[in-house]
Amino acid sequence: MWSSRSSAASCPPASCGHRPGSIAWRGSSRSTSPATVAPSTFDLDLSLSHGFRQLVQRHLPAIGYGQTRSYGEVAMLVGNPKAVRAVGTACATNPLPVVVPCHRVLRADGSLGGYIGGAEAKSTLLHLEAA
């Protein structure tokens, strides 16, 4: 079970400046610490997905680095709280699985759930972000 789960809801776009479909990228060729680099924002082309799947994938970047959400929390975030399984499908069909952070979405009980790269890859990514 993943233990660094954040219980806070995702930030509302109006309060943090996040736009669904964009991602705040932290990284630099000179630094390996995300905290030491100023974030920049760029738009993602999610045209490989459509409808509800694309809606979910556009909201996944709102889950902050080192934070997690449940499939149910993501369903509520996109305005369809009963679509928990559809959120799982949207994560499973994510065309950009590391850039669009579907690895940050967990089961309601805090266990990992699925990931296109496998459970070990999902666990590794979450541990790297927690460091």
Rank of each mutant, 00 (worst) to 15 (best):
M1S: 11
M1V: 15
W2K: 01
W2N: 03
S4A: 12
S7I: 12
C11N: 11
C11F: 08
P12M: 06
A14M: 11
A14D: 15
S15T: 15
G17K: 13
H18Q: 12
P20I: 15
G21D: 10
A24G: 12
W25G: 01
R26H: 08
G27R: 02
S29K: 08
R30W: 03
R30A: 10
S33T: 01
P34D: 08
S40C: 07
T41F: 06
F42E: 08
D45N: 13
L48P: 01
S49E: 06
S49W: 03
H50F: 13
G51Y: 04
G51H: 09
Q54N: 07
Q54I: 00
L55P: 00
V56L: 12
Q57K: 06
R58I: 00
L60C: 07
P61I: 10
I63N: 11
G64T: 13
Y65G: 00
G66E: 09
Q67A: 10
R69N: 06
G72M: 04
G72E: 14
A75G: 06
V87R: 01
C91V: 14
A92F: 00
T93N: 14
L96N: 02
V98W: 01
V98L: 11
V98H: 08
V99T: 14
V100K: 03
V105K: 11
R107C: 09
R107N: 15
D109Q: 05
G110R: 04
G110D: 03
L112V: 07
G113R: 04
G114H: 08
G114W: 01
Y115L: 03
I116Q: 12
I116S: 08
I116T: 12
E120W: 03
L125K: 06
L126T: 00
H127M: 08
A130R: 14
